[in-house]
């Protein structure tokens, strides 16, 4: 499996990770190598095998729908790059 530079650009866009143009070829080479490694699993016949999502086949635990956490908005917002009036700021989305 070999990924083209264009495919790497598309994946990087889906992942919202900017990759410098100079580095695209190296990523294409490395990712293609990893896909070759991954494709070794095609040697296994899995037609009758069920997929395994959890090591202990556990179901997700539920809890009563009651409030257990206190409000820590100020503490959490103190970590943000940019906040104003309790809101997280990002560049303007709609002109």
């Amino acid at each position: 499996m070999s990924l083209s530079d264009a495919e790497v650009r598309k994946i990087a866009w889906l992942a919202r990770i900017e990759i410098n143009g100079d580095d695209i070829a190296a990523y294409a080479r490395d990712l293609s190598g990893i896909l070759d490694l991954i494709e070794q699993m095609n040697e296994a016949d899995t037609s009758d095998v069920t997929p395994m999502a959890h090591p202990l086949a556990q179901a997700q635990r539920l809890r009563p729908d009651i409030v257990t956490e206190e409000d820590q908005r100020e503490l959490f917002q103190s970590l943000a790059p940019q906040v104003e009036s309790g809101l997280y700021l990002v560049p303007k989305v709609i002109e």
Partner: peptide, 8 residues
């Protein structure tokens, strides 16, 4: 496929 192999 990987989840199935994981089962094996």
């Amino acid at each position: 496929k990987a989840q199935k192999v994981r089962h094996l």
